[in-house]
Nucleic acid binder design. Structure first.
Length: 477
RNA sequence: GUCCCCAUCGUCUAACGGUCAGGACACCAGGCUUUCAAUCUGGGAACCCGGGUUCGACUCCCGGUGGGGGCACCA
């Protein structure tokens, strides 16, 4: 049996560091055992999934050099590799479960379910479906469904007994079935939920080892139950510890930069990123900290994973990145990397129109545009509070901006302007007053090229990180 | 609240019953260097607590505490 692993990102936002981390381990495990590594897009959430996000995720994983053997872009014998294109497959499988009595139609309204949850919460009961629609006779359920009444399909779960989940790192984990929810498998829109799609696809795609984040442990019993309902052998399960923020909570974009694009814009090398991710929860047998992807593959062993959730420490990443720059690039290659990073024609052409009118000598360009070629700026509190607003006002303005920026999917001059005007209105501030500290946060100086254009060019990730850093500078003051 | 997972320097980790608990980042002090880096040398810094098991526990078991995650028609 050849080993097959997969990374299955959901295209609902920026390419996440955690995706790269899990992908790396899946990649290494598959390669180490001469197997295949598959990329599958989990876009069953019609509301949140979007193509742009999918493109960015693929782009970032390619940038890192984690090549997949099968995927939506390269195809393969088990396609399609995009779940939204597999709807008929899931419906067939749901029909199988329904027929075998392993699943049932549920006509409960979202309102009823919400009320149920509230009641359970109030009484400190475990949350979960109460089995209301289990009582509906099958022929009646079929009639109502045929008549066009909206419904979902839920899986049946034994009301007693226990389920043993074998995790290859933790050993056996025991759950009472009583605490496993009767999960929705097929949503009212006809698309499957993660739980169903994931099981069906992993089986059909021949996945032998599921290496995923620890957050999935609690739903493993549902997955195992589904495998047994279908009469399939379940893959090996291996749950990786979650990457953490410095405060030890699960790594999140609210607290830290998590977008792979951010790290790219910051000037980290893909080799160093991968190397550092390989240092998260894993170590080389000889303790060596600097290694290539190939070396990691050659030495990879799941048993060397440590289970405490690692804090992602950007300072150490920077040190490692420095080593890669110094030790692995000759001057020629270093120059090429820099050029590809920001001294390329596209980037310069975006900046040129903003600067031409503002220089008297070409040499004025340096100070005027330094912030375009920088990472984080580390502004002082004094420089930020130079305008009409006081520190507290600026802080809340920054908070409001960050909230809006997080929600933005389209990033350009006009959308940035619109959102920032929105923030000023929301806070009852004059745009001009609010923009002054923002200008310093983004460019590090009191004046220069137009702000909205600068933010558009810098991109969402760096812009957001600079605002967050400025906000923190004021906090400390 | 409830279920589950986890627990070594501030951080990433090594150790898989017998080590003065090792390395790395960061920090501090020196050396080298025209500056700054880089680099070299040195330093401080950890086995969460309490019970067992054992001749012997960081290592195994139990309890506590602490941290984290899950509890959606999101993944």
């Amino acid at each position: 049996m050849t080993v097959r692993t997969r990374i299955a990102p959901s295209p609902t936002g920026d390419p996440h560091l955690g995706t790269a981390y899990v992908a790396l381990f899946n990649y290494c495990f598959a390669r180490r055992h001469g197997g295949q590594f598959i990329l599958r897009i989990e876009d069953t959430d019609q509301e949140r999934s979007n193509r742009r996000s999918e493109e960015m995720i693929l782009e970032s994983l390619r940038w890192l050099g984690l090549h997949w053997d099968e995927g939506p872009d390269v195809g393969g014998p088990h396609g399609p590799y995009r779940q939204s294109e597999r709807a008929p497959i899931y419906r067939e499988h749901v029909a199988l479960l329904l027929e075998a009595g392993h699943a049932f139609r549920c006509f409960c309204t979202p309102e009823r379910l919400e009320a149920l949850r509230q009641q359970q919460r109030a009484q400190n009961l475990p949350l979960g479906y109460d089995g209301h629609c289990l009582a509906i006779p099958v022929d009646e359920a079929e009639r109502r469904a045929a008549a066009g009444e909206p419904f979902v399909v839920r899986m049946k779960v034994p009301r007693s007994g226990e389920c043993v989940v074998h995790d290859c790192l933790r050993g056996d984990i025991v759950f009472d079935y009583a605490q496993v929810d009767m999960q929705v498998l097929l949503k009212a829109d006809g698309l499957p939920t993660y739980h169903l799609a994931n099981v069906v696809d992993d089986h059909l795609m021949g996945i032998t080892h599921i290496i995923r984040g620890e957050e999935w442990i609690p739903s493993a019993p549902k997955h195992l139950l589904l495998y047994s309902y279908f009469g399939w052998t379940a893959p090996e399960l291996c749950h990786l510890p979650l990457l953490r923020n410095p405060d030890r909570s699960k790594l999140s974009k609210r607290k830290n930069p998590t977008s792979l694009r951010f790290f790219q814009r910051m000037g980290y090398l893909p080799e160093a990123m991968l190397n550092f991710l390989g240092l998260m929860a894993w170590s080389m047998p000889d303790g060596e900290e600097k290694f290539t992807l190939e070396e990691m593959v050659r030495n990879f062993d799941l048993q060397r994973i440590s289970l405490g959730g690692p804090v992602f420490d950007m300072t150490k990443l920077s040190w490692l990145n420095g080593r890669w720059i110094r030790e692995n690039l000759d001057v020629e290659e270093f120059a090429r990397r820099v050029q590809a990073w920001a001294l390329n024609r596209d980037y310069l052409m975006a900046i040129a129109p903003l600067t031409q009118q503002r220089v008297e000598r070409l040499s004025d360009l340096g100070p005027l545009t330094a912030f375009f070629f920088s990472g984080l700026l580390d502004p002082t509190p004094e420089s930020l509070v130079a305008g009409k607003l006081d520190a507290a006002q600026i802080r809340s303005a920054f908070d409001a901006m960050l909230a809006r920026i997080d929600a933005m999917t389209v990033w350009n001059r006009d959308t940035v302007e619109a959102e920032l005007r929105g923030v000023a209105d929301e806070l009852g501030l004059k745009l001009r007053d609010m923009l002054k500290p923002l200008y310093v946060a983004i460019t590090g100086r009191p004046a220069g090229v137009p702000l909205f254009d600068a933010m558009a060019i810098l991109g969402k990730d760096i812009s957001r990180a600079r605002i967050r850093q400025a906000r923190e500078a004021l906090e400390a003051a």
